[in-house]
Write a protein that binds this DNA or RNA. Structure first.
Length: 495
RNA sequence: GGGCCGUUAGCUCAAUUGGCAGAGCAGGGGACUCUUAAUCCCAAGGUUGUAGGUUCGAUUCCUACACGGCCCA
């Protein structure tokens, strides 16, 4: 009968889409009806697929063994031949081909195996062999359903391509993309390497508050939240700096923290509102010492990541003063043009854009980010910042207009920031007062006045060097990714 | 915040000037004991991001919005 407008089924809706889901649910119910538990509790003795394969690389084409293994993972593909079938099983370490044969398994177990859905999780006992075509495979002697999958997996060959879907449902990206799995395993190795490097150097890992009565330690706006029982506002930290320095006051001497900071600012390829930072502080050290530690830490992380990029990260890195870098790129001497209008005039003379409301410090920042940063491809320390830009850094021993501070740049991107830490409490108090004036003048990123921190400094803090390294950016650098969202498992997304 | 691009089946992608919205994978039925993007046969799968507008007719043109990407600030 020819279909006409009138016999067409009613316009399909969400229910129609769920034909695929209904088929899987039906299989689930069938399994239960047949007395098979679709979600068993355990499966002991599993071996990584990569280990199974590497132990038998020497097998000849067509050679069979009775070396049996137990593997487990997700069913990724199926190629049936009627009374035999090949299936691909994927675990975190890799993929292995399974060979299911009715004469080995018996009719029932065989039929049940090949009627599984792609995406189902199974465990397999079997003997390793190499097919006549040369692929290491496992002959399925027995198998167990470990978890029924009730949703179809991503496309078998292309995986998830839609960027939005990859970010919102990273599990789909991970299950379908070995590259995605490798990336996040590499990220984990980088974090481990950072921790190991600092542990080995005698640093103590600590944890300081994420929820803070007062935020500080960076120029950024915070997220605020509310504590119900205390009925008060709390802030999510923007940095760990001030608490870590209190631990230096307390005598822990070398401390570090790896954790999330939260900054209430725009999202870009270099910025996620929550990001991972390692900060480490070392008593009796200055910023020069910290520069050496930083370049060695990054080299250690690069080694752990198997970094093979074009940029040479081996120490020692290039060192350049901030003022010198601006002078060489633009011909403007910020140490000569020390007044706001002087600098603005110098910039105008060179034909550079001058944001009319910017302060002297903001103009310097503008010059650096526009004209210097993009040129810093090889790893470079920019040294000696204007005091106005650095409320927690100690004055430069040779020039009172500067502080002893560096930012480390690689591939045009800032990856670290460090100071000889300001430990004179009276000087710190004056800096806070300046910040308060900046805030009153409308600077939303100015530091709040932190009396508690000042009291800590008054107890006496040894000369100290401190560094913060952005872990996400380090991972970007070491894995060659252009967006922070690629290296964060679940990046911030709009609803 | 501005500009450009994108959004079509569960997934990956097509669709001529504005003229019946297609394919591959996955899923359903069947054949197949060395396949590997397995193959072959059959059937099914759609509110084309959302809301409007123009038109006899819109996936296609226009407006707004949402989400995402790239570039700029």
């Amino acid at each position: 009968m020819a279909a006409t407008e009138d016999d067409r089924p009613a316009a399909p809706s969400g229910e129609e889409t769920s034909v695929l889901l209904a088929a899987r649910r039906q299989k689930l119910e069938r399994l239960r009806a047949d007395g098979i538990e679709p979600f068993p509790h355990e499966y002991d003795g599993v071996v990584a697929i990569a280990d199974v394969k590497s132990a038998h690389e020497a097998l000849q084409d067509g050679e069979e063994t009775e070396d049996v293994y137990r593997v487990a993972g997700r069913l990724a593909a199926r190629r049936g031949q009627g009374k035999a079938a090949f299936l691909d099983l994927v675990d975190r370490s890799g993929r292995i081909q399974l060979h299911a044969r009715v004469d080995v398994l018996g009719r029932e177990a065989f039929d049940r195996l090949i009627s599984l859905d792609l995406g189902d999780l199974i465990g397999v006992d079997g003997a390793i062999f190499r097919t006549r075509r040369g692929e290491l495979s496992l002959r399925v002697d027995g198998w167990t359903l470990l978890a029924k999958s009730l949703r179809p997996p991503p496309e078998k060959h292309h995986g998830v391509q839609d960027v939005e879907l990859r970010y919102r449902h990273r599990e789909l990206d991970l299950m379908s993309s070995p590259e995605a799995r490798d990336l996040f395993l590499t990220r984990a190795r980088i974090v481990s390497a950072v921790r190991r490097f600092l542990d080995d150097a005698g640093f103590v890992e600590v944890e300081t508050p994420v929820l803070q009565p007062l935020y500080g330690g960076a120029n950024a706006r915070p997220f605020t939240t509310h504590h119900n029982a205390l009925d008060r506002e709390l802030y999510l930290r923007i940095a760990t700096e001030l608490y870590l320095k209190r631990l230096i006051v307390g005598g822990l001497e070398k401390v570090y923290e790896i954790g999330k900071d939260f900054r209430n600012e725009g999202i870009s390829h270099k910025h996620n509102p929550e990001f991972t930072m390692v900060e480490f502080y070392e008593a009796y050290a200055d910023y020069e010492d910290m520069a050496e530690r930083t370049e060695r830490l990054v080299a250690a992380a690069a080694d752990a990541a198997g970094y093979a990029g074009e940029i040479d990260l081996a120490p020692p890195w290039r060192r350049e003063t901030l003022a010198g870098s601006i002078l060489s790129r633009t011909g403007i001497d910020i140490m000569a043009a020390t007044e706001r209008d002087q600098l603005a005039a110098a910039m105008a003379e060179k034909g550079l854009r001058v944001p009319p409301d910017d302060t002297w410090a903001q103009l310097v920042d503008e010059l650096v980010s526009k004209h210097v940063e993009p040129t810093l491809i090889e790893p470079t320390f920019l040294l000696d910042y204007p005091v106005e830009l650095s409320p927690f850094a100690k004055r430069h021993r040779d020039d009172p207009r500067l502080v002893e501070r560096f930012e480390a740049y690689v591939n045009g991107m800032e990856i670290a920031n460090a100071f000889s830490e300001l430990n004179d409490p009276d000087e710190q108090r004056r800096r806070f007062e300046q910040q308060r004036r900046d805030a009153e003048a409308g600077d939303e990123e100015a530091q709040p006045y932190d009396e508690s921190f000042l009291q800590a400094l008054e107890q006496g803090m040894p000369p100290t060097g401190g560094v913060g390294v952005g872990i996400d950016r380090l991972v970007m650098l070491l894995t060659g990714r252009r967006s922070i969202r690629e290296v964060v498992l679940f990046p911030a997304m709009r609803d």
